[in-house]
Design a protein around this nucleic acid. Structure first.
Lengths: 132, 132
DNA sequence: CTTTCTGCAAACTCTTTGCACTCGT
DNA sequence: ACGAGTGCAAAGAGTTTGCAGAAAG
């Protein structure tokens, strides 16, 4: 019942902390393998789940079927590019406090909130402009 | 190349339009079967995809692995209850126009945006209060 | 008639799990 | 030594797809 610190757990946390691209479990696995070659994908999933439960990692369900993992736990938003599928972090865009207030008044208890924008990222816009 | 109007397509659109609970593909399938008994899950998926491409249905990736489908295409937000898994529609909570402006300035082209709240819904709060 | 759409079943992708073994504590 | 954690492989869950036949235009 006492949680243990293992090489695998540390490596997963490291990878997710350093990553800036919201990697999928699969991508985390590839990166963890660089330092722990025999780590299995199952273990990566188990550790990601553990870290998420502890609040050290955020699980994002943005688009498509794969979950993505975000090591940045401070308040921020996301932009998902329809063209390249990339996800960028956005400094938290001010939220109207009216939202929380109104939800509380209606009986909802808000734990977290996330704002996601979909569209074309600067890089892909440049490309489509060049083609035109 | 010319799209065809089929009984199945109509039935899927009907179901999603009428639904207020953001059904999964599976739930849509069950409901479509009431009027088109031999419809297959594959066909439901194909039609949902078509409707989404036409903008008649919104695909939501909220939590967990199943996609949910929303027939309300007007601007609104969602609340996901951690306890019961239910999804409620929220009248759009005012968004700071500063968000869009800033993103445009940074070169992003925003097509849609969604705001999702996670927490406990009024019903589940009542239950947990009763237990306490 | 032509071509899109359908039902069915099989294939695929992502995630979870059972089990015997390993390694932290 | 005890038992949480691991690697492996197999099972689950959700979604997609190939194909032969049905049906919309």
């Amino acid at each position: 019942m006492t949680p243990r610190r293992t090489r695998q757990l540390d490596a997963v946390l490291d990878v997710v902390r350093v990553a800036r691209d919201h990697p999928t479990a699969d991508q985390v696995h590839d990166r963890v393998r660089l330092s722990v070659p025999r780590v299995s994908l199952g273990t990566v999933y188990r550790n990601l789940e553990k870290l998420a439960a502890d609040g050290d990692v955020r699980v994002l369900h943005l688009a498509g079927r794969q979950s993505r993992f975000d090591g940045m736990t401070t308040d921020h938003d996301h932009f998902v590019c329809d063209a390249c599928g990339g996800v960028s972090d956005l400094a938290a865009i001010a939220r109207p406090p009216a939202g929380h207030t109104r939800l509380s008044a209606e009986g909802y208890e808000v734990r977290t909130q996330t704002q996601t924008f979909f569209g074309t990222c600067p890089g892909c816009r440049a490309v489509s402009a060049a083609v035109r």
